[in-house]
């Protein structure tokens, strides 16, 4: 394993409960490998990995991993809340209809989470596709404020590590900026020539701002992290 890979694993392990981490990617990044790798890292210290899958991003990740010839059995044991979409991956613990009024599906969402946290401690919570919800609303501005207010509210309150995957080409500026503000850490992912680059845009330790980690693709494939 490359030294930079070891350093990023160390960095990820320094994240504390109740933090919110924004991971920004563009749709051409290999997020299927990144997700698998992050689940691997998470499972070193907890069994409980929860996913919010808005509009079928998780099935897309599964398909890409299968095509790449990767083992996807780790996905069968993920706890998943579906937000719309039609293909189930993992153990579905709840379903939300994002075409309903946000106050309706958010009330339902909070009930599902409350129940889940009652039974599960030390949860790493991966959230995919919140940026898409903004586009389902006619009064976009109001919803951008509403949903990012919720992100501020859960920071430091909800006893989990929240990892928001945000497709920066789909996210509106107002959503992305407020999501970044509401996060304790912001990481940006890009790749070139067989190397994945993780840049730290925000972190509780000021010295970490601007750091870059370079992970060779082969390190992402290692099951030992």
């Amino acid at each position: 394993m490359n030294d930079s890979t070891k350093e990023i694993v160390e960095y990820l392990r320094s994240i504390t409960w109740k933090e919110g981490v924004v991971v920004e990617y563009s749709p051409s990044e290999p997020i299927h490998f990144i997700f698998k790798w992050l689940v691997n890292v998470s499972r070193k210290f907890t069994e409980n990995v929860l996913v919010l899958d808005i509009l079928d991003i998780l099935p897309m990740i599964k398909l890409s991993l299968e095509v790449a010839g990767e083992d996807t059995s780790f996905m069968d044991t993920l706890d998943v809340i579906k937000g719309g979409g039609s293909i189930n991956v993992g153990r579905i613990i709840g379903y939300l209809d994002p075409y309903q009024d946000p106050t309706v599906y958010m009330a339902h969402y909070m009930r599902i989470l409350r129940e889940y946290y009652k039974e599960h401690r030390n949860v790493v919570y991966f959230i995919f596709g919140v940026e898409k919800l903004v586009h389902l609303r006619e009064r976009r501005e109001e919803f951008e404020l509403y949903i990012t207010n919720y992100m501020r509210y859960v920071l430091g309150n909800e006893d989990r590590i929240g990892v928001y995957f945000i497709n920066k080409n789909i996210a509106t500026d107002a959503f992305r900026l407020q999501a970044e503000e509401a996060a304790s850490r912001v990481l940006e992912i890009s790749h070139e020539k067989g190397i994945l680059k993780v840049s730290i845009k925000k972190s509780p330790r000021l010295e970490d701002h601007g750091k870059e980690f370079k992970i060779p693709f082969e390190d992402l494939l290692l099951s030992e992290v």
Partner: peptide, 16 residues
């Protein structure tokens, strides 16, 4: 406005 004070407090806590 909209829990920004809460956010500032949490960020300070994460910074120790």
């Amino acid at each position: 406005v909209l829990d920004t004070f809460h956010l500032f407090m949490q960020q300070l806590k994460f910074m120790g």
